[in-house]
Write a protein that binds this DNA or RNA. Structure first.
Lengths: 333, 333
DNA sequence: GTCTCACATTACATCGATGTAATAGCGAGG
DNA sequence: CCTCGCTATTACATCGATGTAATGTGAGAC
C-alpha cells in the first residue's frame, strides 16, 4: 500500500495537517519539525495522491491540449512545445484529438468540465462554430490560430499579412502567374480565408489582375489531398510561375507531384509553404516558408491560460506572434 | 457552482447512491427511477467529478504516454494512434516527454506513482536503463519498441529481421556497396544494435565481405544529424551503391544532402528508411521503407496495458507487430 | 392473512489532502 | 507570578462519488 499523509505524520510524530503544511509551505513550520517530516516523507517514499488533492483544492494541475490531428507535423511541433513549456511550469498535459469527428468536440467539452482539467488550449480548425460552446461553466480556454469569431483568449500568427508578404516575395523575382493551393469553397477555415485575402491583397498591390483559376482549392490541408488537387490542376492548366501552398505539409505534397511530372523547382516553378515545419528544411529542394517561433507561441498560450486561471485577466486578449519569410531553395532566392 | 450527485439526487427525489447506481449500471435500478434520475442529470447538466471518482475508486481513467520527443514524425504518428485507440476505449491520455533530459525520467516515474494515472505506455530510447525502476510500486507499464532488457510487457517490430530483409531488398538489384546510417558507437540504443546486426546478417548471407567504413554512425536519429553525418562521410569516402537509414527521418535528411551534392536517387545511389512515416511517401523521390501498422501497434499496446490493469495478465508478454518492405522510387524498384 | 424472499433503495463511512477554527506552547511586560 | 499576545500545531469537517450493510417494499406461497 502506498504511504499517505497519515503515515508520514505518524512516523514524524506530528499531525497530518503539519505534513500538508510542510508540502505547501504557506503556513509556517518550525525548522526541526520540517526536517523530521521531510525525512519521514523520504523514508516512506511518499508521493501525494493527486486525485485527493484535486478533489480538495478544486484544481488538478492538468491542462488539456486539443488538436485536430497529432500526426500532422505542424500539430506535433506545436504539441511538443506546449508540453515542454507546460512541464517546465509543473503542469501535466492531457491530449485530446478533435479529428474530423464533430462529436468528439462535444465529448471534449464534457470532459473539460469534468474537473480533471484546469484549462484548455484549443487549436480549432474544423470546429470554429463548436467553440461557441465555450461558455461560463467551462475552465479557461486559449485558442491557437485564426478563428472567425473571437470567443476566448487567443494566440495567432497574422495569416493575412504573412500570405501577403510571401506572395510579394515570390513576385520579387519577376514571377507573375502565382497560384495558391489550399483555398476552400464556401465557408472554410478562418486561416484559409485570411491567407487567400493576403494573397489577393498582394496581387492587387502588384497590379496583377486576379485570375480565379489560380486559386487551387484543397479542403483538407494534407500532402495527400494537396498532391491530388495539384495534379488535377496541372492536368487542365498551364504551369504557373509560382505556387504558394497554405501549409508546408501541402507544399511537400506539391513538390512530390511536381517532381514526378518532371517540373523543376525552382527553375520551372517556385514553391512556398507556411508554418516552417522541420521537414521543410530537408525537403527537396528545401522549402521557402512563413516562419514563426512556435516556442513563443506555446509560452504565450500558456501565459494567457495561467493568468486567466489565476483570475488576473479580464476581457478577451489576443497575442500576435511575429512571423518572417524564410527563403530557401524552392523559391530560387 | 457545478451540480453534484447530491443535487441530482435531490431533484430526482432519490438518494445520491441511487444516482451513482444509475451511472455505473452494476446495481439494478428500476426503470422509472432510472428515467427520473437520467432526466435530472440532463436538466442539471451534470458531469461527474473525475477527481472524486478517482479518489474513491483508486482509478483515474487516465493513462500516460511517454515519448522522447513529440515533434518527431514517428513519435507523432505513434502518439496519434495511441490517443485515438485510447479515446475509443474511454481512456484519457496524458503526454510525457522524456526528451534528452535524464532527470525527466525520474519525474515521470514519480508522477506515474501519484495515482493520477492507471498505466503507462513508454517508448524508451535514451532511457533503457532507467526503465529498471519499473518496480512493483508502479502502475502497469507497456514498452514500445526494442529494449536491451525485457522489463515489462512490450510491443515491438522485429528490427533485426526487418533490417536484414531491407538489406536483401537493396541488394536484389545488384547493389553491393550498401552503407547504413544510424549506427552508434559503444552502448547505443537497442534498435541501433539490432538493425546493425540485421544488416550484417544480410551482408554475410549475401557473401559480401563486411566493410566497417560503410557503417555511418549517427547518435541522434534526426534529419539534421543524419545530414551532417552523411555529408561528413561523403567528404572522405566514395559514394556507396545504396544507403539504408535506420529511420525515415534520417533518410529524409540524407535525400536532402544527396540532392544538394547532385547525386541522383536511385540512379547513383538507392536510399531506404525505416518506420514508413507519412512524409516518406511524399519525399523526393518517394522513400522505400520498412512499414508496419502503427494502429495495430497502438491497439496491442493498449490491450496489454488494460489486461494487466485488470489483473488478467501474468508474466512478461511480448507482442511482435508484422512488418513489410515497401519499395518506392528511392530504391529504383 | 401472514410469512418469506428477492430486489430496490438508503444511511453511513470512506478514499487522501487540506482549510478552518480551536488549542497548546512560550516569551515578554506589568 | 500572572496575563497577554503571538506562533506552531492539532482536531475536525470537507471536497464528490461509491462500497457496505442495513432497511424498506413488494409479490408469491402456504
Amino acid at each position: 500500500m502506498r504511504a499517505t499523509v497519515k503515515d508520514v505524520a505518524r512516523r514524524a510524530g506530528v499531525s497530518p495537517k503539519t505534513v500538508s503544511n510542510v508540502m505547501n509551505g504557506i503556513v509556517q513550520v518550525s525548522a526541526p519539525t520540517r526536517l523530521r517530516v521531510e525525512q519521514a516523507m523520504a523514508e516512506l517514499d511518499y508521493v501525494p495522491n493527486l486525485s485527493a488533492r484535486g478533489l480538495r483544492n478544486g484544481r488538478s494541475g492538468v491542462i488539456a491540449l486539443a488538436l485536430p490531428d497529432l500526426a500532422t507535423p505542424y500539430s506535433a511541433e506545436v504539441a511538443h512545445h506546449i508540453v515542454e513549456v507546460a512541464h517546465e511550469q509543473g503542469w501535466i498535459v492531457q491530449i485530446e484529438e478533435t479529428g474530423s469527428d464533430p462529436q468528439r468536440e462535444q465529448e471534449l467539452m464534457t470532459r473539460a468540465r469534468s474537473n480533471l482539467i484546469d484549462g484548455l488550449i484549443l487549436n480549432p480548425v474544423v470546429l470554429d462554430e463548436s467553440a461557441v460552446k465555450v461558455g461560463v461553466a467551462l475552465p479557461p480556454v486559449v485558442l491557437l490560430g485564426e478563428v472567425t469569431q473571437q470567443l476566448a483568449d487567443r494566440v495567432f500568427v497574422d495569416s493575412l499579412g504573412a500570405a501577403r508578404d510571401m506572395t510579394l516575395a515570390l513576385a520579387k523575382t519577376g514571377r507573375k502567374r502565382i497560384a495558391v493551393l489550399g483555398t476552400t469553397q464556401g465557408r472554410g477555415s478562418a486561416a484559409a480565408i485570411l491567407r487567400t485575402q493576403g494573397y489577393e491583397a498582394a496581387m492587387d498591390s502588384l497590379g496583377i489582375p486576379r485570375d480565379e483559376s489560380l486559386l487551387i482549392p484543397c479542403e483538407k490541408w494534407t500532402p495527400e489531398t494537396a498532391a491530388k488537387a495539384l495534379g488535377a490542376f496541372l492536368d487542365t492548366n498551364p504551369v504557373p510561375d509560382a505556387l504558394f501552398c497554405f501549409t508546408d505539409s501541402m507544399a511537400i505534397g506539391a513538390l512530390s507531384v511536381l517532381w514526378k511530372r518532371g517540373l523543376r523547382v525552382p527553375e520551372d516553378i517556385a514553391v512556398a509553404g507556411f508554418d516552417d515545419i522541420a521537414d521543410g528544411r530537408y525537403a527537396v529542394p528545401s522549402l521557402t516558408t512563413v516562419s514563426f517561433d512556435k516556442r513563443t507561441m506555446a509560452s504565450e498560450a500558456l501565459r494567457l491560460l495561467t493568468e486567466r486561471m489565476g483570475d488576473r485577466a479580464h476581457g478577451q486578449r489576443v497575442v500576435s506572434v511575429e512571423y518572417s519569410i524564410v527563403e530557401r531553395d524552392s523559391s530560387g532566392a
